[in-house]
Amino acid sequence: MGFFTRCIVNAEHLTPMASREGFAVDHALAKARNEIEKSLFDYFVSLSKFDVNKLKRLTSIHNVAIKSLAVENEQIYKLFFPFLTFVTSIGDLTGFQLLEAAKRFPVYYCAEVDDFRRARPLVGSARVLVNAGYIYDTKLLQLLKHYFQGVRVEMFDEASYAELLEEPSDSRKKEMAYLVTASSQALDKFRCGVLLRQFEPADVPALYVAGADGFLDSSFWGGKASGFLEGFDFGDAGGYGNKLYLNAANPLIQRLARVEDAEMTEHMIQVLYIHAMLAGHYTLSEREMEVLNTGLMKLIGYGLGGEI
């Protein structure tokens, strides 16, 4: 706890090292450490009873340092968690506010900052999504279930997208069936599946979500097969983990569904795919960079009224 406290220690019974820069690690030192820890903890407990504002100020100044202690010590966790702050989709919330929310409905968290940036616009204000991409936050949120009863804290993963994005109506699905089939074919070479959903904000035409094993998928499917897996039927595991969700509520997608030129649809959807990847801060591979370049040229060509 040396990062925010200074203490005066009666070192009479401690054995200094030859260099006088520290103490020998022995029973006396361990006892002294325990005593210091206890004194500090007692002080925090008394603050929580008699001067909560001071405890709040202390926590806000040393937020990260206290989080590092809280992940390791249950007492510190229980004492400080209500005062710790977390970045969420509805602004900064305290641990107390999160705890109260988690008692009423599931609180979601993203374990990566980039995941949070992608998911935040979609969740709206109906759900609380915590950015747990910063050090200690994931572990702190996971410990919540262990230390408090009746709370629901869940990780926001690719399956959560499927829950969040609404199924369009049957008539809309029917209207766009051709687009979905053509899009699936157009993105097959990128190992990306296509699904039709309806979501807010409606001005987002498509959303790209990398599968949990997105990186490994390229080795699994793209690389030279080892031959060991011949004869296996992987069922669902064999489907592409990466998904492009087309937004049925988006006017551009609705117009694209009416295009009858198969080649044009293919190019458009590939550009939308690249756009969705860029919007999600994903890294483009060489093949995708190539599509970005040729796709843009083609779009200009279409804009000018024909092939270039």
Binding site: D213, F220, F228, L229
Partner: peptide, 17 residues
Amino acid sequence: NIPLSFKISEMFHHDFE
């Protein structure tokens, strides 16, 4: 996680070759 185990095995072979 069995599917992931297979993927890592394939990656191992790929790297080994």
